[in-house]
């Protein structure tokens, strides 16, 4: 059962990591907590659903939804966030309030346009479940989990490759280090910001589709839990640190599954992320992989 629960935990953790990655990339560049990523997660799940049911192709659903939502992110960055941040002496709470507003709007827009009811992905896998026996214990692996592991790994590899092996990635890292100096040195910081939004919102959209497939259900309330849990994950990972976010996502997934299954905790499972965060902040205030000067 331990191995089975570990697999369950890593599945959930992978989704958490991917969901929070957008907020991490955006914090890394703009220094703002973009709750609207949860809106991208919600809208991405719905756009993917419509594409899947129109074309019958889940690959097209992922690509189409990630591209559309990613571009939507750039539009928001250009029309909402950048103008706010360009104003002198902008309080850091202002973009956060704008993000909360955008997230609320996205939930309501989805409800009004797509309806209040549940939609089922109904993605049929050739095999419903794989069964193994490991050390005399039964083990089941569901194809949706394999899809989540593989896709998350592929997307995170693409992210690593872009950030570490391309000029655009170099521009991103330079901008994240110090946008002003990077700009003076000729780095096009505007591209770096756009990259954050395309990748961040795109990843959130992919996570939304995967959640929809995993539970075979999407509703206008889909973004509610990620909207606050992603904050715990990105802060735990060390604000703005992509690798830290992956580790934090997996850690929260493991903590949630094992604490809720083996201990009858008097607190809701969703609160575990914040308990872990508080303990972490007491031990290492900069987060798992955060640098001290970032906090």
């Amino acid at each position: 059962m331990f191995l089975q629960q570990l697999i369950n935990a890593l599945t959930i953790g992978s989704l958490y990591a991917l969901t929070a990655m957008g907020a991490t990339l955006i914090y890394g560049i703009l220094g703002i907590l973009d709750i609207a990523n949860a809106g991208a997660y919600l809208v991405g799940a719905y756009v993917g659903w419509y594409i899947f049911h129109a074309t019958g192709s889940i690959v097209l659903a992922f690509i189409g939804s990630m591209a559309l939502v990613g571009l939507g992110g750039v539009v928001l960055q250009r029309t909402v966030y950048s103008p706010i941040l360009a104003k002198p002496r902008t309080l850091s709470i202002i973009p956060l309030v704008a993000a909360v507003g955008l997230f609320t709007m996205s939930s309501d827009a989805v409800r009004l346009i797509c309806g209040a009811g549940t939609k089922a992905y109904n993605l049929k896998f050739p095999v419903m479940v794989y069964k193994f026996t490991v050390f005399g214990k039964k083990l089941t692996i569901q194809p949706a989990w394999i899809m989540i592991f593989v896709l998350t790994a592929v997307l995170l590899f693409i992210l690593w490759f872009i950030l570490n092996r391309t000029k655009l990635g170099l521009a991103w890292r330079a901008t994240a280090e110090d946008a002003e100096i990077a700009g003076v040195c000729g780095v096009n910081t505007s591209y770096a910001m756009a990259l954050s939004y395309i990748l961040g919102y795109g990843f959130a959209a992919a996570a939304g589709i995967m959640t929809g497939i995993l539970y075979n259900s999407i509703t206008p309330a889909l973004g509610e839990v990620p909207s606050y849990k992603m904050l715990a994950i990105i802060v735990l990972g060390g604000l703005g640190n992509p690798l830290g976010t992956v580790i934090a996502g997996l850690l929260i997934g493991i903590a949630e599954v094992f604490l809720s299954v083996y201990f009858n905790l008097p607190i809701p499972k969703d609160a575990i992320a914040f308990v872990v965060l508080i303990i972490m902040l007491l031990i290492k205030p900069s987060g798992l992989l955060g640098r001290k000067n970032k906090v």
Partner: peptide, 20 residues
């Protein structure tokens, strides 16, 4: 007995526990 928060749709780990 497992009491699950309304926001939590994940039943995998609970059902795994019950399976045993």
């Amino acid at each position: 007995e497992d009491y699950i928060a309304i926001s939590d749709n994940d039943m995998t780990s609970v059902i795994t526990k019950i399976a045993g």
